[in-house]
């Protein structure tokens, strides 16, 4: 019987620690499939960050480096500059990338570092139990915005793709979502393109993936998907911001 579905080689055969309904697992799988398809596992270095995915180095078969909170793009810069033939990706959440690591992501992008960032936006801090993230939506209730995020008190959520798109060094920027099959397929294509951009030495590439956090949103997995569709996508429009037609 022909095999129609199997675990990507780049993904270790271990169970993941993520909560039921969390979409990190899907995103990990997409990255692993891309690594397999591009046949780059032997030269890929992943950079884990701080947050729910702090230990995703346990899930990938490529070499992995765990970075301090927000510093993954700086660590990735060091790894890539040491061995420019390596493929380097960072995997960062919204707190890691858009709060504590804002300087590192902006400057890695501005320098046009030949690394790829997978930015997972679920509009909340997961690991530390549901605090306001830079991407938390207006009126969204979190443990540090118990009355809802207010513009007056907390300011506006940050749109990372739009922000980074103004930088010349960032050559490929796309926002995707993993809420349904169609979007998951699009997400994989975007991640693949982002890696190809790096392989072609074009510059910095980033894919923002809208993701769910049922546990900290206080919703069941189905409701969480609906919440993402009804609240996140309107605020964080999907699509390519830069580099759609980039030859790779």
């Amino acid at each position: 019987m022909p095999t129609v579905f199997k675990r990507p080689h780049a993904l270790k055969e271990v169970s993941m620690h993520y909560c039921p309904g969390c979409t990190h697992g899907i995103i990990h799988r997409l990255i692993a499939e891309v690594i397999d398809e591009l046949d780059i596992e032997g030269k890929t270095i992943g950079i884990s960050s701080v947050g729910c995915t702090y230990n995703n180095y346990e899930y990938f078969n490529c070499d992995m480096v765990q970075a301090a909170h927000g510093r993954a793009p700086a660590v990735g810069t060091g790894v890539k500059r040491a061995n420019p033939d390596n493929v380097v990706f960072t995997y960062q959440g919204d707190g890691d990338l858009a709060a504590i690591g804002t300087a590192e992501i902006v400057h890695a992008a501005a320098r046009g570092e030949k690394i790829t960032t997978v930015f997972v936006n679920n509009a909340i801090y997961g690991m530390t139990s549901g605090q306001m993230a830079p991407t938390t939506l207006i009126n969204q209730v979190t443990t540090t915005t118990p009355y809802g995020r207010s513009v007056e008190k907390h300011g506006f959520p940050i749109r990372v793709c739009e922000l980074l798109s103004s930088l010349e060094g960032a050559v490929y920027i796309e926002r995707v979502s993993v809420n349904d099959i169609k979007n998951i397929k699009n997400a994989k294509q975007a991640i693949k393109k982002a890696f190809q951009v790096q392989l072609a030495n074009k510059g910095f590439s980033l894919v923002e993936v809208l993701s769910t956090c049922p546990t900290n949103w206080g919703l069941n997995p189905n409701e969480a998907i609906k919440w993402l569709e009804n609240n996140m996508i309107p605020h964080y429009p999907l699509g390519n911001f830069k580099g759609k037609d980039l030859e790779v």
Partner: peptide, 24 residues
């Protein structure tokens, strides 16, 4: 070789962390 003027001291030491991780 590589010379990078980092955006901060924090970034510079983390670039060292990355380069040292890579074995150089």
């Amino acid at each position: 070789g590589t010379f990078v003027q980092a955006e901060s001291e924090v970034a510079a030491i983390n670039m060292v962390y990355g380069a040292a991780s890579a074995g150089v």
